[in-house]
């Protein structure tokens, strides 16, 4: 708990709880400056993780029809069309009729596998756990669909699957227990099963331009620093690392990003803080409130029976 009250760069239950079985912390570095918005990551993820198709709604939000991360979308490519130059000293388009040049930002979003993960902290069943790779995974055999992790995530990554259960997963035919929908919460596992077999996650493997890079987090951070330096030298407009810093409100992301504009432009919170950062303070406060309630009830007895 103290570890949570003061976030540090290392997750609370990794690597120590795994002893010899602990592996280097693995993660993603998603470099949006080379993302071509092809959505191979979305499809490769769905193929590998057997995620159901979840609707065909045309949004008109540029080429994004998946809209957000959720129970059935573990990689989501955001598309942002802007009248802003891609580089600060020209480049891009300078056509007569356009006052400003265009740029089209694309970003493959994913679970951040936070160092201090709100979803993991609040999960009452231990369905969510920190793996030997330092990643955060929902265990589909444990999750009871309490839904607490859903609002706990500062990024809105997790969601409950409302699609019907699979045939081999029939509900009990009892009142209250007879729910027909899947009802569990799902999110990116960083391909936990593939990692165990020594394979790279499906999205990173498919990514045509290596926008999604997978590897030990330490290495990725180094690589990202170099990349940022290069882009800044090349005067890329708005280039910044997001979630790389172990001192941020979630202790840094296990899956972090290089963005070309402010995080909120991509639908990401600008300064996320894990809600459980305040959990000690909250428990103290709760204890006082509880005690106050005792006193208050006792006070009601002052003044006699009627």
């Amino acid at each position: 708990m103290s570890a949570l009250a003061q976030p540090t760069g290392s997750p609370a239950a990794w690597p120590d709880t795994y002893g010899d079985e602990a592996k280097p912390r693995m993660g993603f570095f998603t470099d949006t400056s080379v993302c071509i918005g092809c959505k191979a990551c979305e499809v490769a993820c769905k193929e590998w993780n057997l995620i159901p198709e979840d609707g065909r709604l045309w949004t008109g939000e540029s080429y994004d029809n998946t809209s957000e991360l959720g129970a059935n979308t573990w990689r989501h490519v955001a598309f942002v069309e802007q009248r802003k130059p891609l580089k600060l000293d020209g480049g891009g388009e300078t056509a007569e009729l356009d006052a400003e040049p265009l740029r089209w930002l694309m970003e493959s979003d994913v679970c951040k596998h936070c160092t201090h993960a709100g979803c993991l902290d609040v999960c009452p069943t231990g369905s969510l756990f920190r793996t030997e790779y330092g990643t955060v995974v929902v265990q589909e055999d444990i999750c009871n669909g309490c839904g607490y992790c859903v609002p706990a995530c500062p990024f809105g990554v997790l969601d409950k699957r409302h699609l019907p259960r699979k045939a081999d997963d029939a509900p009990l035919s009892l009142p209250l227990l007879g729910k027909k929908e899947d009802g569990r919460v799902w999110k990116c596992t960083l391909c936990y099963d593939r990692l165990k077999g020594g394979h790279e996650p499906a999205c990173a493997k498919a990514c045509p331009t290596d926008s999604i890079q997978f590897g030990p987090l330490d290495e990725l951070r180094e690589r990202a620093d170099q990349r940022l330096e290069k882009l800044r030298a090349e005067r890329w407009n708005g280039a910044q690392l997001y979630g790389r810093d172990p001192d941020d409100g979630v202790g840094g992301f296990g899956a972090f990003f290089l963005l070309l504009d402010e995080p909120e432009v991509y639908g990401l919170p600008p300064d996320p803080v894990v809600p459980t950062a305040h959990v000690a303070e909250m428990w103290r406060n709760t204890a006082i409130a509880a005690a106050a309630m005792l006193v208050g009830v006792a006070a009601a007895f002052v003044g006699g029976r009627s």
Partner: peptide, 12 residues
């Protein structure tokens, strides 16, 4: 194909 249809689900 479901996984592709949901990505571009309408003529525009």
């Amino acid at each position: 194909t479901p996984y592709l249809s949901e990505l571009q689900p309408a003529m525009f």
